[in-house]
């Protein structure tokens, strides 16, 4: 391991040992940072993330104005959020959350039902179209949302004519915004596994197209699909411009609305959103992490030989 270090200048076997774990010295350009370096990096990043969160928590717990430079704290604002008395005032927020979750779900569906099969199909049957597909999927990133919206407004007068003016129709617009982000992880994953060879191998073993897809291709694309879904959700939850300009009530627009009247509640919901995103990240990370695990005790059955 030490030999492969590009910067190991001496052949003295003791030298690399002497600097192990040290952030400075010849090993500091090694491929992987040492434990201490990793800890420091993590610490700094953690602080950067923690400061605003702590500030938000602190802010949301404030009660009244500081008296003689002393601030009183309590859970009044948190309680107020769930107080039925206020349901009218905060109703718009809860409705926004419901709408946003609906938009998330439909956008994810668009990615999984439209983008994913298209990408697999192009990869298997029309590799020549790969560049074209990539180009189309990347375009939205080059156009600012505000410009897109200008185009969307007339389109949505038609959409509203067909589907009615429901918040979930925003998914069509968001589905386009999301394309570049959803495309990348799946494309990288597709490139990394040899889809064509794997599908040809499984077909030569007697698998029909459905089996090829469900038993061979999709399991190997799990990671790409999961990151794609996560990024999609993150983008949907972060998208404000389109919802606002198309006059739909989503979590984000509601948050801005409420912030004008009650900044505490806005911060509390922002906190909830953060926690939700965090839990989602961990959950999806769990699903997609690690080496492929044997399904239903593969190796175990091996050891128990039938006699």
């Amino acid at each position: 391991m030490t030999v492969s270090t590009a910067t190991a200048t001496t052949s003295d076997p003791i030298a690399p040992k002497a600097v192990r774990g040290s952030p400075v010295g010849p090993r500091s350009f090694a491929a992987e940072p040492g434990r201490v370096v990793r800890g420091i990096i993590l610490g700094i990043v953690g602080v950067v993330f923690l400061v605003p969160i702590v500030a938000m928590i602190e802010f949301s717990l404030r009660v009244g104005q500081p008296v003689d430079g002393r601030q009183a704290y309590g859970f009044q604002h948190f309680v107020a959020v769930f107080d039925p008395v206020n349901s009218r005032a905060y109703g718009v927020l809860f409705q926004g959350i419901v709408n946003s979750i609906g938009i998330c779900a439909i956008t994810v569906l668009i990615v999984l039902v439209l983008l994913l099969p298209t990408m697999i199909f192009v990869e298997l049957k029309f590799p020549g179209l790969r560049r074209a597909l990539e180009f189309v999927c990347i375009i939205p990133i080059t156009i600012p949302s505000i410009v897109l919206v200008v185009g969307f407004v007339p389109v949505y007068s038609v959409v509203a004519g067909i589907f009615g003016s429901h918040p979930w129709t925003l998914s069509f617009a968001v589905g386009i915004i999301v394309l570049p982000y959803a495309y990348r992880p799946i494309a990288a994953n597709l490139r990394a596994i040899e889809v064509v060879v794997l599908s040809e191998a499984s077909r030569s073993l007697g698998a029909g197209w459905t089996s090829v897809l469900t038993r061979v291709i999709l399991p190997n694309l799990r990671r790409g699909i999961l990151s794609s879904v996560f990024i999609t959700i993150a983008v949907v939850l972060g998208e404000y411009t389109i919802a606002s300009f198309l006059s739909q009530n989503t979590f984000q627009t509601a948050l801005i609305l409420v912030q004008h009247t009650d900044p505490y509640v806005a911060v509390i919901f922002a906190l909830f959103a953060l926690i939700f995103a965090f839990v989602l990240l961990v959950f999806i990370g769990r699903l997609g992490s690690g080496s492929p695990r044997p399904r239903r005790g593969g190796p175990r059955r091996l050891t128990r030989r039938p006699e």
């Binding site: 060879v197 040809e200 191998a201 030569s204 007697g206």
Partner: peptide, 21 residues
Amino acid sequence: PVNRRDIGMVFQSYSLFPHMT
């Protein structure tokens, strides 16, 4: 079609299913 021809194939590139033992 391929899956009905009852043939066995070994490819030049490694073609084992990576998610299976």
